[in-house]
């Protein structure tokens, strides 16, 4: 290890210990185990700053946090899966004695023996780790693929195809709500129930937008003439959609960033109240 790296490591370690002690003292009146809480908060801040250090360049602190994240996340998923699905859903259907051990109500049923099937499939899936018997994992994988395909076939056809088409056929002429005269129709440009022109325009935008968007996705015919013009409108509608999605994503990420900065300045450093 180079001397400069050692210096950085020593500085970070010192700052960590100083922060831990100060945080522990600051939390004395709030928690019984104030030094443990101080350690957890300091470690949390250290991890936050380590990840942010990637903005400068890849470095050992980032790698440490990244590797720690991979390890704990994998274990977290396994533990939650074990307690909620295996213990919560499987054990009560298979074994009364195991249900008593885990202190959960046993569910008596006629077809409970079918639930041995996912256990067998699950164990076969673990065979993937063996070179010799790895082929056995294809059978549970085939079950997963078959289930996903079967459920998606119906689910997507219902909710994302027929339901979306049905929802697109909306009134294009005439306004919703009570008719208040031509003057009110053109003068009230609000999103409220009174803004009937806006509502009607919205319906047109939705109907034509979906129609033109679908035309853009239709590649069996050349996009020329009127068809091409409709396809061009479809592109505009899709661009608005991507712009809106982009705006939303940025907002989401920024709010996460604000959350982390608030944690650093409020919970850790205590600079802002």
């Amino acid at each position: 290890m180079r001397k400069s790296s050692l210096m950085v490591l020593a500085t970070v370690a010192t700052l960590f210990i100083v922060s831990w002690i100060f945080k522990g003292i600051a939390l004395e009146d709030i928690y019984e185990s104030n030094y443990l809480q101080g350690f957890l908060l300091t470690f949390s801040a250290f991890l936050t700053l380590s990840i942010m250090s990637f903005l400068y360049k890849d470095n050992p602190f980032y790698k440490f946090s990244e590797h720690l994240f991979v390890g704990v996340s994998a274990a977290y998923a396994m533990v939650v899966g074990f307690w909620t699905t295996i213990v919560g859903n499987l054990v009560p259907r298979l074994s009364e004695s195991l249900s008593n051990f885990f202190q959960i109500p046993y569910q008596e049923g006629t077809y409970n023996f079918f639930y041995y099937l996912p256990v067998i499939f699950g164990l076969m899936l673990l065979m993937r780790l063996s070179k010799k018997h790895g082929w056995m994992s294809r059978i549970p994988l085939a079950f997963i693929i078959g289930t996903t395909a079967g459920l998606n076939f119906i689910g997507y056809l219902r909710s994302d195809f027929t339901n979306q088409i049905a929802a697109t056929f909306i009134p294009l002429l005439g306004a919703a709500g009570e008719w208040k005269g031509i003057g009110d129709f053109f003068s009230n440009l609000s999103l409220s129930a009174g803004g009937q022109l806006v509502m009607m325009l919205s319906n047109w935008v939705i109907f034509l937008g979906v129609f033109c968007g679908l035309i853009y996705f239709f590649f069996s015919r050349e996009h020329t003439g009127l068809f091409g013009k409709a396809s061009r409108v479809g592109i505009w509608i899709l661009m608005i959609t991507f712009g809106a999605s982009f705006g939303y994503t940025v907002m989401g990420r920024i709010s996460l960033l604000v959350g982390r900065i608030t944690f650093l300045f409020k919970d850790w450093l205590g600079i802002i109240s």
């Binding site: 991979v70 390890g71 994998a74 274990a75 998923a77 396994m78 899966g81 074990f82 699905t85 295996i86 859903n89 499987l90 077809y111 079918f114 639930y115 099937l117 996912p118 256990v119 499939f121 699950g122 164990l123 899936l125 673990l126 993937r128 780790l129 549970p140 079950f143 997963i144 289930t147 996903t148 079967g150 459920l151 119906i154």
Partner: peptide, 23 residues
């Protein structure tokens, strides 16, 4: 469909175990 959904989630837990084991 509901039963297979539960089967699916049980096998998915084993897939997590597989992922952990592989890691």
């Amino acid at each position: 469909g509901e039963d297979f959904g539960v089967f699916f989630s049980i096998i998915a837990v084993f897939a997590f175990f597989l992922g952990g084991g592989n890691l």
